[in-house]
Computed example of a mutant assay.
Amino acid sequence: MVRCSNNMIGVLNIITFVLSIPILSAGIWLGRRATTDCEKFLQGPVIALGVFLLLVSLAGVVGGCCRNSCLLWLYLFVMFILIVLLFCFTVFAFVVTNKGAGEAVSGRGFKEYRLGDYSNWLQKRVENNKNWKRFKSCLQDGKVCQSLQQNNQTWEQFINDNLSPIQSGCCKPPTACNFIYVNETFWTKPVGYNSSDIPDPDCNTWQNDQSMLCYDCQSCKAGVLANVKNDWKKVAVVNIIFLIFLIVVYSVGCCAFRNNRQDNAYPRYKPYP
């Protein structure tokens, strides 16, 4: 009779195997329809994750249910590496997202964001021209600012709106510029405007060209980091739950591996027919 831990490791990995199929299918689907840098960027990690889960779950099923000690040892080794990497990433995510928050602006319902408030590691990611080109392409493809413009808000409605970090940083000039509001994404410079009198360089970076706006502003990069920070915080919490699950699976796998070794060392007595 196959022992309980071997059955359990088999069932858990069958579930993982089933889950890996839609993940892999989603990656292949993204690859076929990818037309933007954002979609192409997602394609590789999704396919890699699907293939990884597929192979690891197969090793777990064969190693546990078919009592193959070599495959089960390989499965446990990969699981151990995964647990260590996931733990390190979770700690890292909490550390790099510890700094940075939006600043309330007097008389405004939205917050504004400064790049210098975030961790140096995150700042370097968005200040890299190659990385930022990809981020900017995603923002333009997502039409975040165009959707904001469709609201057709009055000035009073706009200043009381609770803009997202990306809308606040990328779709309008900073409040310190004192530009004149025409609509959500179109602002005019006041009479006698002198760029040398404005301490914020984003005022000169801003353009009313709808394909440019403030996509190259420091405030836009800060808005993206504010979004990244919020997402990473959620991912880190999910990782903790997943980490606990992996540790439980790893413990069950260790029991199954011990069972396999014991059975190989002391094979059961089979009576002659």
Rank of each mutant, 00 (worst) to 15 (best):
N7E: 00
L12E: 03
F17C: 08
F17K: 00
V18I: 15
S25P: 00
A26L: 15
L30H: 10
T35C: 01
T35Q: 14
T36Y: 04
D37R: 11
E39P: 02
E39M: 12
L49S: 14
L49E: 09
S57Q: 04
V61K: 00
V62C: 09
G64N: 01
W73D: 06
W73Q: 10
V84P: 07
L85D: 10
F92H: 13
G100T: 09
A104G: 01
S106D: 12
L115W: 06
Y118T: 09
L122Y: 08
L122R: 04
S137W: 06
G142E: 12
C145L: 04
Q146P: 01
N152H: 14
N152G: 02
Q157N: 03
L163W: 01
S164M: 05
S168L: 02
S168R: 00
S168Q: 01
P173C: 02
F179Y: 14
S195P: 05
S196Q: 13
I198W: 01
P199M: 02
Q210A: 08
L213K: 02
Q218S: 14
K221S: 08
K221L: 08
A222R: 01
V228R: 04
V235M: 12
V235T: 12
V237P: 02
V237F: 12
V237T: 13
I240V: 15
F242C: 14
V248T: 11
G253V: 07
C255M: 13
A256H: 00
F257M: 11
N259C: 06
N260G: 04
R261I: 11
N264K: 14
Y266R: 10
Y266P: 00
P271N: 06
